[in-house]
């Protein structure tokens, strides 16, 4: 950790500068991979069936843009539902009350054990199950009635399907995070007179975050793509938007590629965001660097090493 003072190095035997081992195998592999990559790029660019012109023309048209907006909206709402519901379910599952932990277990069992596509469809066709939704006391008076069809629009059905399913997965992630925190932390907090709720909020959850964030990032990226499932109930998100277009123009492949490129762009941005989030919640432990930061520090280290080497020779 400590940087050795240059003056203290005087009188030390000369620094070893050995010839590094040459890895010929790596060079051969690199050449082969580069050759394949060039060939792949060449064939993609020159195959007219990819329809790059179509992709270019339609890349930022209004229908695609609003589709992206809906996709992001769906992802955000579903993930917020997932995280909030997941934390709640995880805390319920860790409750000493068997009724509370049991009901959380039942929820997870049902929502994790059935396909999310089926859940989305069920929410979309909820009208056939319960035509009237009402607010009131079960078996008692009701205060308000809603028509299921006007309340559960396709978009709401999509959010419910994705979000409630996600909550089941998130709860397991959160539970693993909570259990990963050393028991001594909760003990130290209660020895200081902190309540159990405060211990959870101030001490355990922030530490659990370090374990929770990486898989949650994965879940978010996965959700961005899974949200395309709601195209089956005609929510005009990105996939459904391009489907409408190619249904009209029969340019299926270019438009599907267009959607894929946008999905890639969005997931890439999320990956970067995840890195900084992980670094924030990893404070107090080893710091991770971005590739750029690593490059800079490497260059700096090399430059100082060179300077010392030169100075050493001059002496």
């Amino acid at each position: 950790m400590t940087v050795t003072d240059e003056t203290s190095r005087e009188g030390r035997p000369e620094e070893i500068r050995a010839v590094p081992v040459r890895h010929w195998g790596r060079w051969v592999a690199a050449v082969i991979i580069a050759y394949i990559a060039v060939w792949a790029v060449y064939s993609v660019v020159n195959n007219p069936n990819f329809g790059w012109d179509v992709i270019g023309q339609n890349f930022t048209i209004t229908a695609v843009m609003t589709g992206i907006g809906k996709t992001l909206e769906l992802t955000a709402i579903a993930m917020v539902m997932g995280v909030v519901g997941g934390v709640l379910l995880a805390i319920m599952r860790l409750s000493p009350n068997p009724l509370i932990s049991g009901s959380a277990w039942l929820y997870i069992w049902a929502f994790r054990g059935t396909p999310v596509l089926v859940q989305i469809l069920l929410w979309a066709f909820i009208k056939a199950l319960v035509p009237q939704l009402s607010i009131g006391i079960p078996f008692g008076p009701t205060f308000a009635h809603f028509d299921a069809n006007s309340l559960i629009t396709p978009f709401v059905a999509g959010c419910l399907g994705l979000g409630l399913n996600e909550a089941a997965y998130m709860s397991e992630i959160v539970r693993a995070g909570i259990l990963s925190v050393d028991q001594g932390q909760a003990e130290a907090a209660s020895a200081l007179g902190m309540s159990r709720a405060k211990t959870m909020r101030r001490i355990v959850l922030p530490q659990a975050m370090r374990v929770i964030i990486p898989p949650t990032g994965n879940e978010t990226i996965s959700m961005l793509k899974t949200s395309s499932l709601v195209s089956v109930i005609a929510v005009p998100e990105l996939l459904y938007s391009v489907q409408i277009i190619y249904g009209r123009t029969y340019q299926t492949i270019p438009l599907l590629l267009l959607a894929s490129i946008w999905y890639l762009i969005m997931t890439s941005i999320l990956t970067v965001g995840q890195f900084y989030l992980e670094r924030y919640f990893g404070r107090g432990t080893a710091q991770r660097q971005t590739m750029l930061e690593r490059l800079w520090s490497n260059l700096r280290a090399r430059r100082t090493a060179q300077r010392t080497a030169v100075e050493g020779r001059e002496r």
Partner: peptide, 25 residues
């Protein structure tokens, strides 16, 4: 009750073998 136990503990300081400092602070 939990809150009453917590109130009792406020007057008792405890130091652990493994320190148990909060690592994120």
């Amino acid at each position: 009750r939990e809150s009453e136990v917590a109130a009792q503990r406020r007057d008792i300081g405890m130091v652990f073998q493994r320190f148990n400092l909060f690592p994120h602070m």
